[in-house]
């Protein structure tokens, strides 16, 4: 290696070290500031890691609704969905100190964790006997609603439940959460092309299954 190259390598190492120090200093400074509702997720995570419980409250209020909706639509069981939402947030708290700002989007990471927890529970359900599968909580809870509305919702849920897990998850990400293809692909762990294919197949299957009930569903 030439002297020039060695000088340049040493220079880049110094720059890396300086950059790392500055980043650590910035994180430490961020962690000291009080959490506010306007703070971004990375800042709030750093603040929580620094011991600020109000940051945890803001993050929870910001994200738990979507995580719970995802789990509810995937599992169709409110109690199980709540367990998944709680476990997802617990993993976020446990990983807060190791969180690297800018490396990944916090909400994407959170949904990835939640989706994997849902997949685990769906796999366990498949392996357990039919008698052990709990009656869906949502349907019981909605018994107080009008019969017609309940019937329509049950039709939709039944149709969704027949879809393969990944098609269901792709529809959840794109339709219900309005996420882009790139983010959906990252959460599902597939390519962007695969996302489009999952969406097409899933929505086509849903359309075909619900074709007979369209008038009832849309009150046409």
């Amino acid at each position: 290696m030439t002297a020039g190259a060695m000088t340049s390598l040493a220079g880049s190492r110094d720059a890396d070290r300086t950059g790392w120090r500055q980043e650590r200093a910035h994180m430490a400074e961020t962690a000291m500031r009080p959490a506010t509702a306007e703070s971004d997720d990375d800042t709030l995570i750093a603040q929580f890691a620094g011991g600020d419980q109000s940051a945890a409250r803001i993050l929870t209020e910001r994200h738990i609704g979507r995580v719970l909706a995802l789990a509810t639509r995937m599992l169709r069981d409110t109690a199980e969905a709540e367990d998944v939402a709680q476990e997802t947030m617990l993993r976020a708290w446990r990983n807060a100190a190791k969180w690297e700002p800018g490396k990944a989007k916090f909400s994407t990471w959170l949904h990835k964790v939640a989706l994997n927890l849902c997949y685990d529970r769906l796999r366990k359900r498949k392996s357990s006997s039919l008698e052990e599968v709990a009656e869906p909580m949502d349907d019981r809870a909605s018994a107080q609603q009008g019969m017609e509305a309940e019937e329509r919702l049950t039709l939709l849920k039944d149709a969704m439940e027949t879809l393969p897990e990944r098609q269901r998850a792709a529809i959840q990400m794109r339709h219900f959460e309005e996420r882009g293809n790139d983010e959906t692909a990252e959460i599902l762990g597939v390519t962007v092309e695969a996302v489009e294919s999952l969406l097409s197949r899933g929505r086509r299957a849903l359309r075909d299954k619900l074709a007979g009930q369209r008038a009832l569903l849309l009150e046409e």
Binding site: R73, L153, L156, F176, L206, R214
Partner: peptide, 8 residues
């Protein structure tokens, strides 16, 4: 039809 299913 999908929008009928609101998240809790």
């Amino acid at each position: 039809m999908l929008d009928l299913w609101e998240g809790p």
